[in-house]
């Protein structure tokens, strides 16, 4: 027997491909631009969003029947903000080093439109287990794009991956640099992320033409 029913499995699989939050729903672009200059930051951000979206979706789903419709957006904001603050405080107390790396992302998580989007579109109308899977799925779909963009931007922009010099040393001219290769400084500035995301969207839609919207 499968661990998840087919319908449940799709909640995780869809956002990874045909309903990706970044490339199809075009949400969360802002953070995808801001923090993908290096791979490590992309991974950290992806994990943070995974946690906040997974837990947040469950919380919202649990209280969905008692939230007054008029102030539901405020309630959602309060849930995200409190979760993020609690995580930040706990990390500061028990994993100080990690919290320093993460502190930059805290503000970005609160404003991430994917989180509000999933609360609003899914958790408010579905049970906790489904909402949890939906949160995990969307966070993974977001994370995958972040990591891909981070990979190319760090590799082409700085010649490193996770801070390791994989292409040789640009200053002392070793490895690829000895035959005249240069880092592309354009890749480390935010607009380059748009171009990489654009290429991903292009590749994805040319492989699956159903995704192309009618003009």
């Amino acid at each position: 027997m499968a661990l998840l029913s087919k319908k449940d499995a799709n909640l995780i699989k869809d956002p990874l491909a045909d309903n990706n939050p970044i490339t199809i729903q075009v949400l969360g672009i802002c953070s995808a631009l801001a923090i993908t200059a290096e791979l490590k930051a992309s991974v950290v951000m992806a994990v943070s969003v995974l946690f906040v979206l997974g837990v947040g979706n469950v919380v919202i789903s649990l209280i969905r029947n008692i939230i007054p419709a008029k102030i539901r957006i405020i309630v959602q904001l309060v849930v995200v903000a409190s979760l993020v603050i609690i995580v930040d405080q706990v990390l500061k107390a028990f994993a100080y080093e990690l919290s320093k790396t993460l502190s930059v992302f805290v503000g970005l998580i609160i404003t991430n439109c994917i989180i509000m989007g999933r609360f609003e579109a899914f958790a408010l109308g579905n049970g906790p287990w489904k909402s949890f899977l939906d949160g995990i799925g969307n966070a993974l779909g977001y994370g995958v794009i972040l990591v891909i963009v981070g990979f190319f931007r760090e590799l082409l922009g700085s010649g490193t991956l996770f801070g390791m010099k994989v292409l040789g040393d640009p200053v002392t001219k070793t490895g690829l640099y000895s035959i005249g290769y240069e880092n592309n400084g354009f890749m480390i500035i935010p607009p380059a992320a748009l171009i990489v995301v654009g290429i991903i969207i292009w590749v994805q839609r040319s492989r699956n033409r159903e995704l192309i919207e009618e003009a």
Binding site: A34, I35, A37, E38, S103, V104, R153, I188
Partner: peptide, 9 residues
């Protein structure tokens, strides 16, 4: 406190 990762950071 909050410089851009990969650049100012």
């Amino acid at each position: 406190r909050g410089e851009t990762p990969g650049l100012g950071a």
